[in-house]
Structure formats: structure tokens, C-alpha cells
């Protein structure tokens, strides 16, 4: 397994771990952090492919992902704060009445 293959495998595994965390954990904040882990996996694959091909486009996309992650956290944390203020819990099952 050469370096590029290894890095792509790590990025896929990080994405899978993040997805697994979003599905199986019940804490809202932990789910948010697992989403960040998914973004990090995508970043790693973008950087390794950009490095392989020598083009800067992948690095530009990584920067845009940084911005999207910052914006996501800036909006998600106030929403979590409000949810907790309403029900005093971080558990996702408590919010199952939000559907629809």
C-alpha cells in the first residue's frame, strides 16, 4: 500500500467513523463533533489528491470547507443551546416530536 492509497484509506475510514458516530451516539454535541470528523476525512482526501496531481484546486476547496465548517458550527451551537433550554437534555430521543 503506497502513501496515496494509505491516505485515501484513512480518509474513507475517518468518514465512515464520523458517519457511524452520527448514527449510533445519542448526545447532540457528540453528533456535531462526528460531523466535523466527516469533514476532516473529506479534507484529507482532497489534500492528498491535490498533492498527487500538483493542482491547487483541491487546496482551494479545502479552504472553502474550513469556512463551511465554521459557519456550520456558528449556526448549530445556538440551535443546540435553544433545544437544551427548552427540554434540559442533550439526548436526541427527547426531540423525536420535532418530526414533520
Amino acid at each position: 500500500m503506497d502513501k496515496l492509497q494509505f491516505l485515501v484509506f484513512v480518509s474513507v475510514a475517518l468518514f465512515a467513523l464520523g458517519l457511524l458516530g452520527v448514527i449510533v451516539r445519542r448526545n447532540l454535541l457528540v453528533m456535531l463533533m462526528c460531523m466535523e470528523l466527516m469533514l476532516n476525512g473529506v479534507n484529507l482526501s482532497l489534500v492528498s489528491f491535490a498533492q498527487q496531481t500538483g493542482t491547487a484546486s483541491g487546496a482551494v476547496l479545502v479552504f472553502l470547507i474550513f469556512v463551511v465548517a465554521a459557519a456550520e458550527i456558528a449556526v448549530a451551537i445556538p440551535i443546540v443551546l435553544l433545544l437544551v433550554r427548552r427540554k434540559r437534555t442533550l439526548e436526541t430521543d427527547a426531540y423525536s416530536d420535532l418530526k414533520g
Binding site: 449510533v24 445519542r26 451551537i77 443546540v80 434540559r88 442533550l90
Partner: peptide
């Protein structure tokens, strides 16, 4: 920012004892 939110929301609920859904 996330660590601040965690410190702010130190709610001890069921998601601490039962980690997995």
C-alpha cells in the same frame, strides 16, 4: 467554540449513561 458549548451545557442526562442509540 465547541469546548465552550460543552462546558456551558453540562447536562447530566441519559445520553451520559447510555452512549449508544
Amino acid at each position: 467554540f465547541m469546548v465552550y458549548a460543552i462546558m456551558l451545557l453540562d447536562v447530566r442526562d441519559k445520553s451520559y449513561t447510555q452512549r449508544f442509540s
